[in-house]
Structures are given as structure tokens and as C-alpha cells.
Design a protein around this nucleic acid. Sequence first.
DNA 1: GTCTATAAGAAGATAGAC
DNA 2: GTCTATCTTCTTATAGAC
Lengths: 188, 188
Amino acid sequence: MKKGNTRDVILHTASELFQRQGYHGTGLNQIIEKSGAPKGSLYYHFPNGKEEIAIEAIKLMGHHILESAREDLSEKDTAIEAFQHHVAKIADVFDGKACVDGLQIGLIASEMASSHESIRLVCQSAYENWQTLYTECLQRFDFETERAKELAVVINSLLEGASILAQTNESGWPLRAVAKQLPALLVH
Amino acid sequence: MKKGNTRDVILHTASELFQRQGYHGTGLNQIIEKSGAPKGSLYYHFPNGKEEIAIEAIKLMGHHILESAREDLSEKDTAIEAFQHHVAKIADVFDGKACVDGLQIGLIASEMASSHESIRLVCQSAYENWQTLYTECLQRFDFETERAKELAVVINSLLEGASILAQTNESGWPLRAVAKQLPALLVH
DNA sequence: GTCTATAAGAAGATAGAC
DNA sequence: GTCTATCTTCTTATAGAC
């Protein structure tokens, strides 16, 4: 848990709960209890209530996933190695109980896309940033721009989908299956 | 809407709502209202309440996706054509407002995996059936058994993830990006 | 099989004291 | 910035008549 101010503590806790239980599955009381944040200060820091908390939490998730992805992808010398390393690290997390911070934007995106336009847009923007990072990485490894963009979308889909399967199976093996097929996908 | 008995009407409506709003986002009242089913009969048909409705609804989704996938995959002469056709049909649905019936098991799986073991298991089983169908299809096109199984997991991930992106972007283009890269994946 | 009424609790949100 | 109390609404679930 971060040691920042109350606002950050609430946001960090909300982010974690939203990813595991979704928007509607997470109560404001639960966020308060788990974070240990002062109960009365919630609507002081987030005057627009739950929706505002969700929007800020999603932005936070987006930053986290971007940071760790950037780190994973910078450690190897080929595109295949880089992305396999990235996927392998995610797989390891799913072998434990946890889910990767930032990876499960998809849950909120799915349940809110049809009802809360503002939340849908924040999710869309998070995915765009993520795909941009992938695209830049692929370009660095000499993939042509248009193909890099397309592959970024595919890899994004692959990770999002395999994460759901991993959660459902309580195991990282779906992600390892994905990692194994990456070389076929990443040919010039 | 089906014309079957009350139980089927409730189940069909619940299935649709769960897929768009998730488990916690869907109220029993909403299911009753939208289905037009008699309000008093809910706990007669589903004595175990919401959880029982969800479990039966997920099974229904699993059957629907299996049926339409089986149909899509049987119409072509190569694995690449077959799966591209399958993905293209799903993409078309996302261009409209709707989501594909059965495809969004992932939403319920994600939000319930950590709290309701029984629901997690039903989702797991639905994914298994789906992957088995893919595996059999790939074997029919001369893929070796082990490789067919692995590819089935990857295609399953790909579709599940791309569907989330499609919903978030309110467009089928992520699925078309996936379809375009399928040939690279489906090499013998 | 269906209907009404209602329990019992939790949800999000607000007001006003401190 | 934080605390307490409260309001309203909605949730799941049950009881008992028809």
C-alpha cells in the first residue's frame, strides 16, 4: 500500500477491487474498509462519487500496465524474446492468486461500455496507449509501421483474452500457450 | 424472444443482460421486467435464486456459442478460411450495437472467478467445450493433435480479447485485425 | 404456477458538526 | 479534511394467498 495521501490510498485500493470484482461488484464501503482511509473523506476527494473514482482508478491501472510493459519489453534483443518475456511474467502472476495490476481493465470496460460512455472512453484511451507502446517496440525491431500497428492490436487481444482464461482456470497456462505461438505471429 | 415456457424466457433474458452488464450489474427485478415473465414465479423455477439463474444462463450461452461456431467452421475448405469466416461473422455483429450471444462469458468469469467457485467452474467448462470444438476442427484440417489443442487456446484467447476491444471501441475492427493475422498462426 | 406484500439488508449519496 | 448520522433507493429473498 502506498503511503501517499488519502486520495491515493483510496484510488489504489479501488483499482485493486475493481479489477477483481468489477464496478458493480465493488461497494464504496468496501473500498473505505479495505483502504483504511477515513470514511468521511470519500466525497471530499471525489465529489462525483463512484464514477469519478472508477475513472481515476482506470487511469491509474493504465499507467501501471504501461510501466511494467515498458520495462519487460526493453530487456531483450528480439521482438519474439521481448514479448515472450512480457507474457511469461504475466503468466507467473496468474499462477499465484493475484491478478496483474492494470491488466484487467477489460472487466470494467465490458460491464460499463454500454451504459457509461465516460468510462468506456477512459478504457479506450488506456488500450490505445498500450497498443502504442507495443507498436513502438515492434518498430524498434524493424517491423513496418502498419504491420506493427496491426500486430499490437492482436497482441493486446491475445493478452486480454488469455488473462480471462487464466483467471477462469486459476493458472497461467493459457498465457504460456500464447507465448509459445508468438514466434509464428512475429515474422517479418 | 423464445416462446417457450416461463423458465426459458427468464433464462434467455438473464443471459442477455448478464453478458452486457455483468452479474452484479444485473438485478433480478430487471430480468423480470425485461422478460415480461410473471414476477412471482422466479423463485419457483430457480429456488437457489440469482446464482442458480446465472449458472443456467452461462450453460445456455455456452451452447449458443458452440452452435454458431460449429456452423461457421463447417462452411469452408481450409482452416484459415474457416476461422477467418468465423471471426468475420463475429466482427459484423460488433459493428452493430449488439454483442454476440455466448461470447461474453468472459465478463461473468472475470468478476465471479475469485468469489463464486461454482460459477467459475461453469465458465471453465464452457471454455473447454469451445476449445474442444476448435481442436476437432483443426484436426480435421490435418493439424497434429497437440498443436491443434494449443492453437485452440490461442484462438479462444484471441476472440475473447478482441471482443472486449470491439466493445470498448464500438466497432468490429479489432476482430478484423485478428482475422488478418490468422494465416500466420495457422501454418502447419 | 403465479401473485402480492414485505422483510432485511446494502447500495450510493448528502447534510451538518467538528 | 474528517466524522457521524441519515435519506433514499435498490437489492435479494421469503411468506402466504390464490
